[in-house]
Design a protein around this nucleic acid. Structure first.
Length: 421
RNA sequence: GUGGGUGUAGCUCAGCUGGUUAGAGCGCCGGAUUGUGGAUCCGGAGGUCGCGGGUUCGAAACCCGUCACUCACCCCA
């Protein structure tokens, strides 16, 4: 019989790792709430059309990376490759724009993309993201960046760089593209095959190519940021001065182009040198046109998403082991001891005191070995001698100090102790 | 989809240019006399050497194929 294995690029998160994940998720929730964002839980799958219309039908994500399947009636559904589309859909569907703006949401959960796995990239991966609806004020852009920066700093991630760029308005990009294209045509012979193809489909992406020759060829390319409309220019300048005001260092990157169609104006990415090839920890930007594109009112918005696996890869080895701690080990042995111990174990748990026992152990020695391994702080020894005396021995597993306590009323004694310690 | 690297015990890995019963460390189970854990000592279980084929008197090792994992390209968080 062949062993059924997990799916390629889909990982189990084992008990040894879950404390670290809770640590990351707790920090994300805490900071999001601190900045006034509220949690939204959106479906894992949606109509395929939602992603095609928001992310862009021509993007790699939609074109070849989605897990798409027909529903029983034939309508095309897809596992979500990112969280913004679903959040915006929910925002529109529940007519949230009729409630007072602005509104701020965050989400956390798994996303799915069919790519070849590598370091920091899985087919099922996890993102934490925020969406700030209802204001085009540049301070919203800054706030979102500040939240991301603060979260990553709080997690003590090192070697972070904030890269930022402005994509201008859609009109700015339309005006800029022919200018860029004219430049690229002169350099065409120096560009890689990939970039030559990109010239027609998405000339901006050529600037983001990693091939050294392409970088050299586009060194002197006209910059989008030099062709911004006055409004876009002013918005960008205000974002930058705001970042300076709150002490967040940034690096201008005129080549930074996001792969999703809906971004406009501010575009940013936080990268790390500790991540291998996939060096973006989190990224985001403004998407003022998306709500309207998806059939809602015209509501400006800005947000980001963080890759939690990438955060996890960078997280310094911290002392997180205590999160799995259990307080009492009940060492019940001997005929009467076992009977009483089993009831005691359940009583402890019943009042919310963590306790465990290895039912296989029959001797005190065996129990203590298990108690040691279980990392409990105390062992409650209950053999036939104690049973006869109506008592138990409470043993501190670290100091080895022991004291005898009455069995009757033991849970309430321990309950008051656990509150005081 | 393309390329490189790696597949030997639960985990981390040895195994020299092919040679007889495939090893170590850690982990696991048990023991070192009567009811006291971690340390030490002793013992034990556990492997179709990823899978299939080929070369050979003989393959974990060499060749071909295949699969898996991994890193990278592409792209993205």
């Amino acid at each position: 019989m062949d062993m059924i294995k997990g799916i390629k690029g889909v990982k189990d998160i084992l008990p040894e790792e879950t404390p670290q994940w809770r640590f990351i998720e707790d920090a994300a929730r805490r900071w999001a709430l601190c900045y006034g964002y509220q949690e939204i839980r959106i479906p894992i799958f949606e109509l395929t059309a939602l992603f095609a219309r928001s992310i862009g039908a021509g993007t790699d994500i939609v074109e070849k990376e989605m897990y798409t399947f027909p529903d029983r009636d034939g309508t095309s559904l897809s596992l979500r490759p990112e969280g913004t589309a679903g959040t915006v859909r929910a925002f529109i569907e529940h007519n949230r724009a009729a409630d007072p703006l602005p509104q701020k949401y965050f989400y956390i959960g798994p996303m799915f993309r069919h790519e070849r796995p590598q370091a920091g990239r899985l087919r099922q991966f996890h993102q934490f993201g925020v969406e700030f609806f209802g204001t085009s004020d540049p301070r919203a852009d800054i706030e979102v960046i500040a939240l991301l920066w603060r979260l990553l700093s709080d997690l003590a991630l090192s070697n972070l760089t904030l890269e930022i760029n402005s994509l201008g308005s859609s009109g700015d990009r339309a005006a800029y593209k022919p200018i860029l294209l004219a430049f690229l045509r002169h350099q065409e012979s120096r560009l890689c095959a990939n970039c030559r193809r990109r010239m027609d489909r998405n000339p901006l992406r050529v600037l983001d190519c990693k091939v050294l020759d392409c970088r050299a060829a586009t060194e002197l390319a006209p910059k989008l940021t030099d062709h911004l409309s006055p409004d876009a220019r002013a918005h960008f300048d205000q974002v930058l001065t705001g970042l300076v005001a709150i002490g967040i260092p940034y690096r201008l990157n005129p080549r930074l182009v996001r792969g999703l169609d809906y971004y406009c104006l501010t575009s940013f990415e936080i990268t790390s040198t500790h991540l291998g090839a996939q060096n973006a920890v989190g990224a985001g930007g403004r998407y003022d046109g998306l709500v309207k594109t998806l059939g809602g009112p015209s509501v400006p918005a800005v947000g980001f998403a963080v890759g939690l696996e990438r955060v996890s890869l960078m997280l310094p080895e911290a002392s997180l082991s205590s999160l799995n701690e259990c307080l009492y080990y009940v060492a019940a042995f001997g005929e009467e001891g076992i009977k009483l111990g089993f009831v005691l174990l359940d009583e402890l748990r019943g009042v919310g005191i963590s306790a465990q026992c290895d039912y296989r152990a029959t001797t005190l020695k065996g129990h203590l070995r298990q108690a040691d391994r279980s990392k409990c702080r105390y062992a409650i020894l209950l053999g036939d001698d104690e049973a006869a005396r109506g008592s138990v021995i409470l043993r501190n597993l670290e100091s080895k100090a022991q004291e005898e306590l009455p069995l009757v009323g033991l849970t309430s004694i321990l309950k008051t102790r656990s509150f005081s310690s």
